[in-house]
Amino acid sequence: MKSQIAIILLLLLNILASCSKEYPAEEQKLVIEGWIENGEFPVVLVSLSGNIDNDGDEVADFMVRWAKVSIHFDDKTYILTGSPDKRYFPPYSYISYDFRGEAGKTYTLEVEYKGMKATAKTTVPTPIEIDSISVGNVEDNDTLRSINVHFTPDRDETDYFRIRYREYNTESRFYPSFLGTISTRPSDGKISIPLYRAKLKTTKDYIPYFPIGSVVEVRLSRINKESYDIWCDYDNIVNFGSNIFFKQQTNLYTNIQGGYGYWIGYGISKSRIKTTK
């Protein structure tokens, strides 16, 4: 009881002092957005976090051009080369053309910049084939088409997937499909999942469907549970982060030690479809 009275007295003092309380700030940290896919070169984007005082600062100011980015596997270390890359935003990426990702292998990423160091480890899962992709009509709309991706999980346990896509000739990078992070159970059988366009803060109007004539490249990516948790968190923040009723004031789960973001291995299978009338 005495300790509670002391707490109350301290709180009352705290009230008096609270008027001059300063807004908490945090030192800048490295932000990593990296992935490695079977049969593809690894890609890593590096930027810095900004604090609340950075209201009005250009996003490009947080881009990191001079980081040392390396990937270690099979007792070898590869240095990734940074260069301007308009496919991504911010438009700068670190890529190695010395090796491609292989299913089953584990890759350790290390990023160093101005005394900061971030590390992460991921494994590329074994991919699963896409059975087919179908195109459907959108109700009350003659110019848009819906797309569904069909596949059959082959594991006797819960499995995790993320659907990504790219509109050929108009988009240079693969975007995560809206609501495209899924878990499947062995009893599910054949899976059919709608492919919605990504919700991005960098585009003004969101339309989930594809215009007629679009050529859409689809990547069905098998991911591990850790990556699934990251993407579920991500989708939640993107969809409800600024929603007054369902506000999500939680931090994005990260597998980066010493920074934010993700380093994810994708076991991918590819397919392409054209939306027709």
């Binding site: 800048q28 932000v31 604090n51 609340i52 991005l200 991500y234």
Partner: peptide
């Protein structure tokens, strides 16, 4: 409170 912000997948993420 939001301590910091960063860009990921062309979306803004807040670190609380």
């Amino acid at each position: 409170p939001i301590l910091s912000v960063f860009m990921l997948g062309e979306n803004i993420m807040c670190n609380y």
